[in-house]
Amino acid sequence: MKRNRLDIIHDILIVLKERGNNMKPTHILYKSNLSHKMLKLYLGELMEKELVREEAIKDGKKRYSLTPKGFDFLREFSAMKGFIESYGLEE
């Protein structure tokens, strides 16, 4: 079944949470089952929404982790999904 935007965002955040909340982009890519281009787009959007933070480590490599707002999103996810479904707001 095709994932919608909300599902993809959820999958990225849940991967981060379950894997110690500190991951390299390649690991997120593998676990969230997205293309490199799509992951870059989504991570950019998640950082803009302050759900995920980026940290630069040595050699210009990056690691990603959830912000408190990201944890809040995961708590509210089923309610948001239920809301979208019950009112038929899917795009």
Binding site: R5, I84, L89, E90
Partner: peptide, 18 residues
Amino acid sequence: LFAYKVYRYSGVKQGRLF
């Protein structure tokens, strides 16, 4: 308020109009 929250978090544009 909740619909706006859904829009802010998910970017589902219908949420904003809703």
